[in-house]
Every structure is written in C-alpha cells, then in structure tokens.
Design a protein around this nucleic acid. Structure first.
Lengths: 325, 325
DNA sequence: CTGAAAGCGCTTACAG
DNA sequence: CTGAAAGCGCTTACAG
C-alpha cells in the first residue's frame, strides 16, 4: 500500500519526479530514474490507476459486456478481449448480463465512467435503444457480432462459410436440407437467413425452413421432431449447441449419424470437436473478434466509425456424410 | 459526462449536498433529495466510482483471476462471481491467465490497488508464492478450489460425490475400476486421489491407477489405450473433458458405451448433459463457489480466515451401466 | 532536469 | 439539514 509520496520521501525527491520516473519517456535524469525505480521496487509500489485516471482522463480500463459467459462462444470472445487488453496493459471489467437485455443498458451506463471504451458483444437490445445508449455515454463502444450504422463494429460474414457448407453437402449428394433457425429478430439470425438463401440459390439446393427455436440445447431437442418428419437428408442448425440437442434427440430415436442424417452446426465452439460424432460446423471468429474489437477501441475515431468484417469457414468433421439412397 | 458539480449547479445546491442526496441514507431534507435526484437523472449523472474510491478507500471493484475462461468449469465460476457481485453493486475485473502461473502473480499485483478484494480461482502457483503474494498485497484474497492455511477459501469436498460414484458402480455390479488422474501435484488432484482411496476402501472395489494425463480432451484420448488394456469395467476420469476424450477414442475403437465400459467424469460441466451418451459425473459447485467467494470477500476478516467447504454429488446419466458379464 | 502547485471528481468531518 | 474546505493519489503545465 505504498503511495507515490512514500516513494518520493524514501528517494528524497518530489512526487512529480517519481511520477516522471515511472513513465518510460518522462523527463528525468537517468540516474534519478534508476534511484526512484529501485526505491519503488523495494517498497512494492504500484501506482493507483484510478487516481491516475482521474487526472489523465484515461482509465486504462476496458468494459466487456456479454450475454452469457457459460456460452462457450462468448467465453472465447471474452478470452480474446482479455488477452489482447492485457497485452496493452489494460484491465477489463467483464459483465455477464445473463441474457437480460435491460441489463445491457445498465451495464454500459455504469461502466461508461470507469473505462476508456466498451466492447459490447451481441447485444440483445433493439436498434433504437442501442443508438440512444451510444449517444448517452461518452466512452466509445465497439459492437461485436452486431452491426449498426454509425457505430464501430466487428462481425462475421457468414457468407463464405455457408457457401462452403452448401458445396460440401452438394458434393456429398444431398439435395434437400433443413434449416433450424434461432431467435427471431436477432441480427445474426437475419444475416444467417440471408446467407442461406444466397448459398441455396447458387448451389441449387432446396431449403426447408423449420422455423425458430431457442438457441439452446433444448431448442435442438425440440426441433428434432420436425427434422424427422421432413424430407431433408441434412440439417443446418442455428448454432453448435442447438446441433448438439438435435444430435442427442435423434440418437435417442435410433438415428445413426451421420448415415441417417447429416448435421452442420455453427460457431465452432470448442466442444464441437469433442462430441460423438464430432460436429461439422461453420467456424466464426471468436478469439479474433475480441482481439480486433480491442484494437478498434484503441484507435476508435468517434467521427468515422469502422465496420470490420471477419470471415467464416466450414470445418468438416464427422457429422456429415453422403445420404442413404 | 455530467459531473457532480454540474448537478450541484443545475440544482442550486452544493456538491456536498448532491453527494449526500445520492446516498440512500445521507442526511438531506427529503425535498432536497427529490430535487437533486431529478436533476441528476435529467443530466444522466453517474458518479465516477474511481473518484469515490479514492476518498472512501472502497473501490467497489472486485478482481477475478481464472486460469482459462474457455474451460466451462471456470466460466461457471466466473459467472457466479459476476452475478453475485453485480447484485451488490460491485464491478469485477476479470483476468484470464491462460494457464500461465507467472501471470497469476502479475495479475494479482496489478489488481491489488484497484479492487476491494480478489477471487483467485484454482491458482497454479505453488504454496510459497501464494503465501508471499498474500502478504505482499493488502486487498483480501479468497481462494476458490484451493486451500491454504491462513487464507480465506471456498473449495469442494469430493468425498460425498466420490462415495456416491463408488456405490453407484457397486450397485451396477462393477468390481474393478480404473482411475485416470490429472496433472500431478495439483491440489485438487491430491484431494481426488484421497477421496478415491477412501471410497474404494469403504466399498471394497479395487482401483487401477492409470497415471496422470493433461486435463484436456487429448489427455482422455491418450488414456484410452491403457483403459482398454486394463481389466476395468468402469473408469473415473479426472474431469469431464478428459472423459469426453476417453469416450471419443473408445467409440472410434468400436466400443459401445456404456455397455462395454462405464465412464464417470467430474465437474458436471454444462456440456456433460449434451454429449452422446450423456455423461454420468460428479457435480462440483461452480456458480455457487463463485457466489460464496464474493460473500466471503465482503465479510472477510483478515485476522480470522475461513475455509468453506461445499459438497459434491453424483449426477447419474447415461454413461454408466451394468458391466457385460 | 526538478519542484511547488493546481486540479481530476468525489466524500466527509467540521461548522453552522 | 446544508455549505466550505480538506484531502484521497496521482499528473502536468508552469517556473526555475
């Protein structure tokens, strides 16, 4: 709990000099810096960042808001954000809103004063609220996996991955596939639907829309029945977790996968490579999305927001195969 | 970016009065508070917590240090910590050390000044370093899933769960089981080994020690061979992830689970209920561990550290069955 | 290169 | 109940 004054006294200099010595390029005589640093080290002095932030206006803190840390997709983004931030000597406040949209607003508001910027991950709030929030606070925000004109964002383009998925399926001999969608009116959901339409059009595969489910394991369970009663020989699920639910229920119903049905997930969550069968999925940037978000934040120009689009790619594993003829 | 002075001016009172009005039980006339609060609300005033912390000595921030957010076990603990903290109006700095012990020390040090306490989760550093760290900083630390005399901690007792696991196996008709251990010299690992010895002794089951593997999916893959060549009809894995690796490789080798082999994991990570077959596992407190850690931190008495032990329980799912006779 | 002083946004005795 | 003032730990013009 040594303070800058303690160091100054012990070193026989003023606090101003200590302050300068602590800065890599502060104007101090080399020998003075050496002395100060030695004393600081001996006393275990760590500058109080809050006090520093008060005067510099830079807190050296970042805020990270995610809907659910238990969702490995967000955990990966959080990890990317953390590690990148730490590499730049930034601390990060993480808040898990537990999928509660109202909490996103609260979180951003309370974070606003104590951070230099906020990474807002897949916000569930509507466009209007989002825009209002942005105008209300002064800290720059960067959106992850959501886009909004006038705001900084980094998101994934699903197009490449989806196109690859369709080509993969066509190559295997599939002709009709089903799509199990996630929550309605989710930004990512809309993007996904568009990517599917585009890929379907290009490959000539026909797509059966099986409607929307909650983006959880249970959603997949619930969708299994409609998949069974459809003519599809393959199914693309909203995300990996939904795919797991699908696979699980189908297996219980006696399906042998991938022989009886090919399943493709989305996200490439770490567990996708651990299930049985291992899941073929469309990999979305997670760690990288977090990394880029931090970089964007640091060079954010409020007047000229940037939208960064990262790619996606199909990861072929064992849950897809040729259909039974 | 309204400041307390802005509010004071707009309300025609002093900053002291604004400050008091913002505190639930501050000594202000009711009508004054009403006025101030209205003005504050209109201006979107949010007190600067860093400035407040500077004078009160309470930052209203907590630090959370975990080895790996991608590990769903730690993600759950992080979530429990977050949500509990938020319920008490505390913000939490999260740092992911990426399994790097040295970073634990760095993280705790840099956090020390800006938080009221630190939740240190499953630290990988050795006892001596841990103790040194504790003495070096002034902020209270509470250990999660690690115990150290003289420090606050919340950890899980594996005894109940392990006993239940053995009884379950005995009831099914198993007589010899294998144990795949995790990293040597891990605190939790030692506890686990002790719990197994105790349970084995009580139930009369004989245990084959299959050595240590990395606590990852690959560890399970690697252990599969020795499991196959052993006489065990059931296996207890270090954690769920290792169990997944085991199951995966065994399935590839043509094993039908649980008929050919019963598998029990540990942790009850969310994915355990999503795999095929669903994993029987020993549930360890995760969310609750995080919650209790925060509570402990708030009432922490440096002079009289407390050690809280939470229970464990067997969750029977589909990866265990009677052995083929 | 160095120090004295002002000030960042708040809270809290101290007076009234 | 309210205000003026001091002070939390720092940084940064401003002088030297």
């Amino acid at each position: 709990m040594a303070t800058i004054l303690d160091v100054a006294n012990a070193a026989g200099v003023s606090v101003a000099t200590v302050s300068r010595a602590m800065q890599p390029d502060g104007p101090v005589r080399a020998s003075t810096r050496e002395l100060v640093l030695a004393v600081a080290d001996r006393l275990g002095y760590q500058p109080n960042r809050a006090a520093r932030g008060l005067v510099t206006g830079r807190t050296m803190n970042l805020g990270l808001v995610v809907p659910d840390l238990l969702n490995p997709f967000f955990a990966a983004i959080a990890k990317g954000t953390q590690l990148t931030a730490r590499g730049r000597d930034l601390s990060v406040f993480t808040v898990d809103t537990d999928e509660n949209p109202a909490d996103e607003i609260t979180a951003v508001r309370s974070l606003a004063k104590q951070v230099d910027g906020i990474v807002l991950c897949s916000p569930r709030i509507d466009d209007a609220s989002l825009r209002r929030l942005q105008e209300e606070i002064q800290a720059p925000i960067v959106l992850v996996h959501r886009r909004m004109t006038g705001m900084n964002s980094v998101h994934a383009s699903l197009d490449e991955g989806m196109q690859q998925a369709f080509e993969h399926l066509v190559g295997l001999g599939h002709e009709v596939i089903a799509h199990v969608g996630g929550p309605r009116a989710s930004w990512l959901g809309d993007r996904r639907a568009a990517a599917i339409r585009a890929a379907a059009g290009r490959t000539g595969i026909s797509v059966i829309d099986l409607g929307h489910v909650e983006p959880q394991f249970e959603g997949g369970i619930r969708a299994a029945e409609s998949v069974r009663s459809s003519d599809a020989t393959a199914v693309i699920a909203y995300n990996d977790i939904v795919a797991f639910g699908l696979v699980s229920r189908l297996a219980e119903r006696g399906y042998s996968l991938p022989g009886d049905l090919s399943v493709i997930g989305c996200d490439d969550v770490s567990l996708s490579a651990m299930t049985n069968p291992r899941l073929t999925t469309i990999r979305l940037p997670k760690f990288d999305a977090g990394r880029v978000a931090v970089e964007l934040l640091l060079e954010a120009d409020h007047n000229e927001p940037r939208e960064i689009s990262l790619g996606s790619e199909l990861i072929v594993r064992a849950s897809t195969a040729a259909p039974r003829s």
